[in-house]
């Protein structure tokens, strides 16, 4: 097991390296940040000085070499715009995004699995069909549109919930959290619901198809032949088997929630990482973009590792291959 984890960490360094190379070249290809940073009326002298101070006067491979050298010492560079360390800028926004993602995922899992089970157990009932029809809507409606509708109904017309921003935060061990105040929750509810909708539909469909498949298995018939109650057959025998694929998907989707909740954060003016990324891309703030994507890759690696460990805990047939490739 420790060997398995160690191997994963080494592999992730390869991924990080390739990722940094791609992003570096990609942002370079988009345009020259100097055009945006320096006043158009500045003299050529001023421009050259700015370029030199940011290291932008060097050829790309020298710039990358410097970045790599610093990155290995834990320094991902300073933001061109804000002049502060890029990583710090991102980590500052991390709690806001994280709490949004966690609440959205909880909504998706806690509603999705029971609804999916129900739809799988009663595929021909009107309630089962209604759940499936709803999940198709959740799949196909664009996030931004749903977000706007949520604001229109709950914030503008009904006036129940605030339309934008994050509520008051409380510092816990240096991390600012808005989940501890009622107003914080009121601010969180709409963006979290918006973000959860697609994942909810995905989990419903996954749970339903898993349930329908499991119900045909001999072990379910045998469990019923043993005289077990329906609750036990479904809640233990079926659920424990279908949880295995669900955990995988939830893990990966959780990663994408953290990394790419850009649209929702923009609509609800949620001060998270997604909004920062968007701003940084439009301003060609390369250090922030690179640092952001490296952080995202790291998150994915960690989540994947957690999924694999959970997998082994859920499925006794899985043995983590530590010794061989």
């Amino acid at each position: 097991m420790p060997l398995f984890i160690l191997r994963r960490i080494l592999q992730s360094f390869n991924v990080l390296f390739v990722m940094s190379l791609l992003v570096f070249a990609g942002v370079y290809a988009i345009g020259n940040p100097l055009d945006l940073l320096v006043d158009p009326n500045a003299t050529a002298d001023d421009t050259a000085r700015a370029a030199a101070s940011l290291g932008l006067d060097q050829p790309l491979w020298v710039q990358y070499g410097r970045f790599l050298g610093n990155a290995l010492q834990g320094d991902l560079g300073n933001s061109f715009i804000h002049g502060v360390p890029a990583l710090g800028l991102i980590v500052e926004r991390l709690p806001a995004t994280l709490e949004l993602a966690v609440v959205a995922m909880l909504i998706a899992v806690l509603l999705g699995i029971p609804l999916g089970l129900w739809a799988g157990l009663k595929p021909d009932s009107w309630s089962g069909r209604a759940i499936m029809a709803g999940s198709i809507l959740g799949f196909s409606l664009p996030t931004f549109w749903v977000g706007l509708m949520l604001i229109m109904v709950f914030a503008v017309q009904l006036g129940w919930l605030p339309a934008s921003g994050r509520g008051p935060t409380v510092d816990v061990l240096g991390v600012s959290i808005s989940l501890l105040t009622a107003d914080g929750w009121r601010h969180l509810l709409l963006p979290a619901a918006n973000l959860a909708l697609f994942k909810l539909s995905l989990i419903i469909r996954l749970t339903r198809s898993g349930t329908r498949e499991a119900l045909l298995q001999d072990y379910v018939k045998f469990a019923r032949a043993k005289g077990l109650s329906n609750a036990r057959v479904v809640g233990v025998h079926v659920l424990k088997n279908i949880l295995i694929p669900i955990v995988t998907v939830v893990g990966l989707e959780f990663g994408s929630l953290i990394a790419f909740s850009v649209v929702t954060e923009s609509i609800f003016a949620w001060p998270g990482m997604g909004k920062l990324l968007l701003d940084s891309i439009t301003q060609l703030d390369r250090p922030v973009v690179v640092a952001y994507l490296l952080l995202v890759v790291t998150l994915y690696v960690v989540i994947n590792l957690a999924v694999d460990l959970l997998y082994a805990a859920l499925d006794p047939r899985v043995r983590l291959a530590g010794a061989r490739a």
Binding site: D218, A223, G227, H237, K240, N241
Partner: peptide, 29 residues
């Protein structure tokens, strides 16, 4: 079922639940 009338199935590879231990599956019966 399972008390007065019991049933044994054809394929032993498929009848026991793969993710539950033998004791769990027996004790619940």
């Amino acid at each position: 079922r399972g008390d007065r009338i019991a049933m044994i199935f054809q394929d032993p590879m498929m009848t026991l639940n793969p993710v539950l231990r033998i004791d769990t599956q027996m004790i619940e019966t």
